[in-house]
Design a binder for these strands. Sequence first.
DNA 1: TGTACATCAGTGAACGCGCGTTCACTGATGTAC
DNA 2: TGTACATCAGTGAACGCGCGTTCACTGATGTAC
Lengths: 189, 189
Amino acid sequence: MARYDATQKEDTRRKILRAASREFREKGVRATTVPGVMESAGMTVGGFYKHFDSKEDLFRQALTEAVSGTSRLMQMVPEDLTGDAWKRAIADVYLSEMHRDNVKTGCALAALSGDVTRSDRETREVYEAGLEQMIDQFRTKLGVDHETARAEAWQFLAQLLGTLILSRAVASPSTSREILEASRDAAAD
Amino acid sequence: MARYDATQKEDTRRKILRAASREFREKGVRATTVPGVMESAGMTVGGFYKHFDSKEDLFRQALTEAVSGTSRLMQMVPEDLTGDAWKRAIADVYLSEMHRDNVKTGCALAALSGDVTRSDRETREVYEAGLEQMIDQFRTKLGVDHETARAEAWQFLAQLLGTLILSRAVASPSTSREILEASRDAAAD
DNA sequence: TGTACATCAGTGAACGCGCGTTCACTGATGTAC
DNA sequence: TGTACATCAGTGAACGCGCGTTCACTGATGTAC
């Protein structure tokens, strides 16, 4: 309510963004509502457009935020690991039941892939940038030969995403566990 | 308009279902509308509830239809292939640019995974049944040892799905192609 | 075979509802003097 | 330091719109006699 206090306004923006990035991941773009996000952020609807142009703009910004939060997931693994040992460690974190059950705060690339596919070019570019960031980090862990490592990085990332997505879509807990285990074991070959 | 002509009514039901399964894959569940589906099927809204209980019921039935259509995808590959040769052949079909660009008629397991994750148990069971069907076919192609083959089947399926999903979400055509190629090459190791 | 009637798949207007967005406002805080 | 004023982040009611669903209806066809 104050004037010239840019910090406070920025704080509010971040609060909305954080609430939005959770709800988008959990419910998807269409089922997430502007009034709902604002309520989660502890505010009323009206103020929304002081911070964002539209719901699509919110999605784009929340995606950016969620995606950069995701690559922090990689820091949960000892820094000195490389190659197959690193793959195994990443798979254990990424394909854990904990990660599967935490859609809200988990990997945005997995949770929002479907929504992004149906979004406009600008949004898909944000998603791609996040992917590239991830691939780049993967590549440095996987070897020196640039081209081969990059291909292996894509392959590994696809495996991780596909497995997590399947494990979340399935109805029975035992099948879900089986899916996670199969790919975790594969990373340890 | 007729009475007692069960065949004609069933034909109409199938026509609606076919239109729905395309639109669900293309636009997702929330963006697909009952009036829109009925128009695609060449009819008006009102008749819809003579065939389906609700939009959710339509989704469940369309998913069943789309999923069984998907396992027909496997018949595009020579029947005598097994093991790695079979994997290579399946990857070439599944990870083709043609399949990537045909969301409407392509693999329902890939196109609807996000929507299914956010659906109720009954719907997720339909999805899981489709997966099991797929896994069973995969397993027989991959070896005799039941447990190992099943694990390898899950792993391979996750790889296929993850790759297709990523290739569709990305903005640039060249990155999309790179993703497809990386996993196609991996299947041929 | 011909006619009157019953059925019910499909029509299209209408319903209530929640969405994204707008807008007149409020009131706490910074600025000017 | 104290007071009057301007600003603008946030409020909450209101808007038009399209959704899922309902419903009174229509008219082609099957059945009864």
